[in-house]
Design a protein around this nucleic acid. Structure first.
Lengths: 125, 125
DNA sequence: CCTCTAGGTTGACACCTGTCTAATCAACGT
DNA sequence: ACGTTGATTAGACAGGTGTCAACCTAGAGG
């Protein structure tokens, strides 16, 4: 189940990988590749889901633990998890009855690098 | 013109400010506050606009320089710039005939901090 | 006052999204 | 084979989004 619905060029090796947004203009290609990831994080529910998955002990979270944390139906959570999966931010694996989601740090790192800003004030550098 | 359309609680002082997503669960409030920023960056055009503004020399970019860089109408660019502005990512100022946009590093820093991931492999640290 | 130029605003349109219920699928125990 | 539980898929619907053409506003300069 893990990679089936991601036929995109989500190699991420395809991306020149992120000179900070503030230092070099993002190319159209890079933008087209990374914007979907930001978009996936652009929903409060998905942002929390991402965090719950990424910060879970063992590095993975069971859907059965994620769903009850929200006031939303199961299918809706499933829908958001799929969005995260198709964005390349998480990976899923079925083990027995349960499905576990796991963060994929590669893309997260690229996003973080892209948003990097020099320390605090441009004066104290 | 700068701050008029942002009555939101975009203090950003309101946010506990970003223990990394991977280390602590993002609260509902933090998610509600930061997700719109990710959402604003979740469009290729806006991501490029953000980059062009943030990386511009002098720290600001004129709309007259931004618009011709895309194959889009003026109003569409204006629409995207507004989205960035209302997300708290940029600020605009009119000087004479032209309007200049400038990045607001605060929020960018928060987003980057939120996405921070420990180096690369937990092995080679 | 008039006009020219740079941007923004409005209204319209097609499309995408978040949410739900209902139906379906997958694995485990009888 | 059957029923139960966990999760995804399908279909539907309201609301949001990206885009444009048309119009409007703000300065600069006659």
């Amino acid at each position: 189940m893990s990679n089936q619905a991601v036929p995109l060029s989500l190699d991420l090796t395809a991306v020149p990988c992120c000179p900070p947004l503030t230092q070099q203009r993002v190319s159209g290609e890079t933008a087209a590749l990374l914007a979907p990831a930001f978009k996936a994080l652009g929903d409060p529910v998905r942002l929390q889901l991402m965090s719950m998955i990424a910060s879970a002990e063992g590095g993975e979270a069971c859907v059965c633990d994620l769903t009850p944390a929200f006031d939303l139906s199961g299918p809706t959570i499933s829908h958001h998890l799929r969005a995260l999966r198709e964005a390349g931010l998480v990976d899923s694996e079925r083990r027995g009855t349960w499905v576990y989601y796991r963060a994929r740090p590669q893309l997260l790192r690229q996003l973080a690098a892209l948003l990097a800003v020099e320390p605090t004030a441009p004066a104290d550098s």
